[in-house]
Simulated scan of single mutants.
Amino acid sequence: MTSNSYPFGGKVVLVTGGGSGIGRAIARAFLNNGATVAVTGRRTAPLDETLAGADPDTTLAIGADLADPDQAAGVIDRVVERFGRLDVLVNNAAQFVAKPFTEVTREEWTGIRSANADAFVHLLQRALPELERTGGNVVVVGSVSGLRGDWGQSVYNATKALIMNLVQSLALDYGPRGVRLNSVAPAFTVTPITEGIAEDEQLLARFTNRVALGRPGRPEDVAPAVLFLASEDARYITGTTLAVDGGTTASTGQPHLD
């Protein structure tokens, strides 16, 4: 999973959206590096699959809808009650909508905003006092789509930009309190949500055409970057966004003609 080892023994990590894809890879990477890991998502069965084989004394699966402020606060409370502390919050859970802006329904806008932005706000408001107590940190799985625009997915991009800017702003507020906040920004990554694209060679080629390294990302490419930002090796890094995109954002956007 990772080339480097990080001493996360004794640290308590909460990963949202930990039941599949990038969230699962991140949770397992922390487990492999000795952390106590809690994962949360709407369905508990995938969370249990993520934690399968790990020591039940150092793991916790919590089913919750984080768009509900009471449930979000309750997740933080359960982690602290069970393990006595919280050292790292990894905000990964997200929804995706791709359609023309004027066709986005009120329900779709409310849903994606609630899942991608409101849930993070609710979690942070309860988690930050705990992270201040432990000198902990936050890592957000953002997106290159939060850095620039994309065709046909304006509302998704807007929510990603919101949480990534929130990280920067709170890094200023909480740096003096000993809490670091950072983001990673993947580009196209093969997960259960994007497998349909990955299996269509012609469609996949339109995505990899923009990637300097010539292949789509994998969840296992993102997890090590999250571990680094959460570790003491990144102790002087806060308020930053680390692109984990194979060089996608190195491009001006002009087509690769070879």
Rank of each mutant, 00 (worst) to 15 (best):
V139S: 07
V97I: 15
P129M: 10
R82K: 13
A72N: 02
R113M: 15
V140N: 11
S5N: 05
R78A: 14
E103P: 01
A119H: 00
V141S: 09
R24S: 15
Q71A: 11
D118Y: 08
G21P: 01
R28A: 06
G19T: 09
T50Y: 01
G18Q: 08
V80D: 08
V121Q: 10
A67K: 13
R24V: 10
W109D: 09
V37Y: 02
E107M: 00
N92C: 06
L31H: 07
S20L: 15
I76V: 13
I22D: 02
I62V: 12
T36F: 09
T110N: 04
T50D: 04
N32E: 13
V79L: 11
A73N: 06
L14D: 02
V140F: 10
V37G: 00
G136Y: 01
T110S: 07
D118G: 03
L66C: 03
G9Y: 14
I76F: 00
A119F: 03
G21E: 00
H122E: 07
E132C: 12
I112Y: 10
Q71R: 14
P100T: 03
P69Y: 05
A93K: 03
V13H: 11
T102D: 15
N137G: 11
A64Q: 02
F120Y: 12
D87P: 10
A29S: 06
A64F: 01
N92W: 00
A61I: 05
T36I: 10
V80R: 09
A94K: 04
G53E: 04
R82I: 04
R85A: 04
N91R: 12
V79A: 09
D48N: 14
K99L: 06
